[in-house]
């Protein structure tokens, strides 16, 4: 790689040799070295261990040291199992639906709260409650609201004449996952709201006024002025929500445990059951590696979104 430097500033540029850049920034690297070592121990080693374990069979009757090497067999088992595809479909539905609706609700709330009105601070605080409440508490709360025999929602629907018996939310294979998604959206939209409210602060007021003077209606002002300014923060928000949803565990595990009959089983709950329920560490590791690859892809896009515009910046 050609080594070039900025003649004006004398600083190194991105297309300089890696080694030369490291040498030039040796003090910086020295500062981050302790953190790097800690990360190697607590993050890199478990990742390597998991990848290594994914190539072994670990029956419940043997110690881990007696595991047997099976090559790609665990991956083959996963990819040929019907459960993998149903769990993957559940995960995709869960992630996309939760992310999309949480973002949409968050955007609506952010736009509403961006305007001055009486009681705005109180309303903002109220809307933040789902985000700050413990996921465990929220899960149990919603479990009882949804309860198929004695749930508040079911009782009200009967009392108000919408249904003749309580609605079966969590004990039905067709309604369990959508019911959990509603809970997840309720928990996450506040996060999107906070992020987007911060983004709205960056929209220049004079541009909005100019558009108004030019005769743009509310939708046109939003679409042509506000939305482009929110693009960056929206991307970050969506990516963070997707990563969080791919890794969701507490809500589905506590409310249905992945049931009934696997109807709300997503990757994380499935991996947990294989590892801690079935003690099949090899298979669970292979599942985790697949999930890790998906997360790395998402992470790549996240970093790209975060560092957009950094390229031309001198180091």
């Amino acid at each position: 790689m050609a080594v070039t430097s900025d003649p004006a500033s004398g600083s190194l540029r991105r297309d300089d040799g890696l080694l030369r850049r490291i040498v030039a920034h040796r003090a910086d690297y020295a500062y981050v070295l302790p953190a790097l070592v800690v990360m190697m121990v607590v993050i890199a080693y478990p990742i390597w261990f998991t990848i290594d374990m994914s190539f072994y069979k670990t029956p419940a009757s043997l110690q881990l040291r007696d595991r047997t090497f099976v090559g790609w067999k665990n991956y083959e088992t996963i990819l040929t199992a019907p459960a993998f595809w149903s769990v993957t479909l559940n995960t995709v539905i869960w992630t996309l639906a939760s992310t999309f609706f949480a973002f949409l609700l968050g955007l609506g709330a952010a736009l509403s709260l961006h305007r001055e009105f009486a009681g705005r601070a109180v309303l903002r605080a109220i809307l933040l409650i789902p985000y700050v409440i413990s996921a465990v508490a929220a899960s149990y709360l919603w479990k009882w609201l949804y309860h198929s025999d004695f749930g508040v929602i079911g009782a009200l629907s009967v009392q108000w004449g919408f249904t003749d018996k309580p609605i079966n939310f969590l004990d039905n294979i067709h309604t369990a996952l959508p019911s959990l998604i509603v809970v997840n959206i309720w928990r996450e939209f506040s996060f999107a709201m906070i992020m987007l409210m911060a983004g709205l602060q960056t929209v220049p007021e004079q541009l909005l006024r100019a558009a108004q003077v030019d005769g743009a209606n509310a939708w046109q002002r939003f679409w042509h002025v506000t939305a482009p300014h929110l693009k960056g923060v929206s991307m970050v928000t969506v990516l963070l929500l997707m990563v969080a949803n791919f890794n969701s565990f507490i809500v589905p595990y506590l409310m249905t445990g992945g049931g009934p009959a696997g109807a709300s089983d997503i990757w994380i709950t499935h991996i947990y059951q294989i590892a801690f329920g079935r003690q099949n560490w090899g298979l669970a590791s292979a599942y985790s590696v697949i999930l890790f690859i998906v997360m790395m892809c998402l992470g790549y896009f996240y970093v790209q979104a975060l560092t957009r515009g950094d390229k031309g910046r001198p180091e």
Binding site: A60, I173, P260
Partner: peptide
């Protein structure tokens, strides 16, 4: 047997759920 927890806590409840749903 070492596999009993998986049989009792996972496979049998799954069997019930598969039939009851």
């Amino acid at each position: 047997i070492a596999e009993a927890p998986e049989i009792m806590n996972i496979i049998i409840p799954d069997m019930l759920q598969n039939a009851l749903t």
